[in-house]
Structures are given as C-alpha cells and as structure tokens.
C-alpha cells in the first residue's frame, strides 16, 4: 500500500522508536562502540530517516532501513575512532534488501533468544551466560570456571553461537 512518511504523525514516530530502538542499539553496540558513540550512531539513523522520509515508500521496510543505516553509521564512527579521515564523507543511503540483520529484534525476540540459550547443551549454556553477564571475564577465568582448556574457549564460543543461531532459525 502506498504510504507517505511525510504524513507520519508524532504517535507513529514514537511507535517506530519503540519498535526499532532496541535493535538499533544492539547493532551499534555489536560494533564495539561505547555508549556515547552508540548513541550517536542511533541518533544518526533517526536524523537520516528525517532527511530521507520522502524516498521511503514502504513502511514495512522502515525498520530494516533504520537498522541498516545504524550499522553504516556505527561502522563509520568505528573507523573514525581508528583515524580514517575519509569517513567524514557521506554514506550512501543503504538499500534494505538482503540485509541479514534486517529481521526485527523486540523484547519478545530477546525472551525467545534466552529460551533458546537454555535449550543448549553444556557447556554452551553456561559459557554464553558468563560471556554475556560477565563481559570482563578473561578466557583464563572462563577456562577455570568451566573446567575447560583455555585453548578451546574461543572455538567453543563460536560453536555455541552457531548452534544458537540455528535454533533461532528453526523457530522461524
């Protein structure tokens, strides 16, 4: 259905913030940005939406567009932190199609994510819980706590996340 975002009223805007703000924050933080930089990346996406409203025709895609734009801005801020001056140039307006992170992440998705973690076998369940809730824990500490060789923490982490991802995909 054609839909003119220029006609978005304030309630509809607040609804967009409620629906997508959570996932945009996750995307920015996944780049390793600190809270201040992540806030800038998210705010950038909202301001870009303001500038680009007239180019967006499909409201179903606004969420994906916001997520993709947050990702671009977060990448840009990340590069700027590492001293790449070229990043002051504008990012292209990204196309939302085919974005693997374009699915929504809501609080409900968060609950499903943790329910899936609980279904993972040992040591995945414990390992992911520790990595998430004690982010400062070193591999040496994780190794002692889980009684695993330190060299297997990294590969196990990768394997556990892969299992988690496939559990989530099965649910779709």
């Amino acid at each position: 259905m054609p839909y003119d975002l220029d006609l978005l009223d304030e309630t509809a805007w607040r609804d967009l913030v409620a629906r997508h703000g959570y996932r945009m924050w996750a995307v920015a933080r996944a780049f390793g940005l600190d809270a201040a930089d992540a806030a800038d990346a998210v705010q950038a996406a909202w301001l870009r939406l303001l500038e680009s409203m007239h180019t967006i025709r499909d409201p179903e895609r606004v969420g994906a567009w916001l997520v993709t734009t947050t990702r671009h801005e977060a990448a840009r801020i990340g590069r700027r932190r590492t001293g790449d001056r070229l990043t002051d140039l504008p990012a292209e307006i990204p196309a939302p199609d085919g974005d693997p992170t374009a699915a929504m992440l809501t609080e409900e998705d968060g609950r499903r994510l943790w329910a899936a973690v609980d279904r993972l076998p040992h040591p995945c369940r414990m390992l992911l819980r520790l990595i998430v809730t004690v982010p400062e824990a070193s591999y040496a500490q994780l190794s002692r706590r889980l009684d695993m060789p330190i060299g297997s923490i990294g590969p196990t982490r990768g394997r556990c996340l892969k299992r988690l991802r496939s559990l989530m995909e099965d649910e779709r």
Binding site: A26, R29, L161
Partner: peptide, 23 residues
C-alpha cells in the same frame, strides 16, 4: 553475526539496557 548475537543477548539480559536518553 557472532558479535551481533552477543550484543542482542546482553541487551535482552538487561546487561546493556538502552539508555533512556537514546529514546
């Protein structure tokens, strides 16, 4: 994808709440 999944887990666990100022 791994970093995204971990960030999503952190947020869902309440370990990285979205600051009120952001909203």
């Amino acid at each position: 994808d791994d970093e995204y999944l971990l960030a999503a887990l952190r947020i869902a666990a309440g370990a990285d709440p979205v600051p009120a100022r952001v909203a």
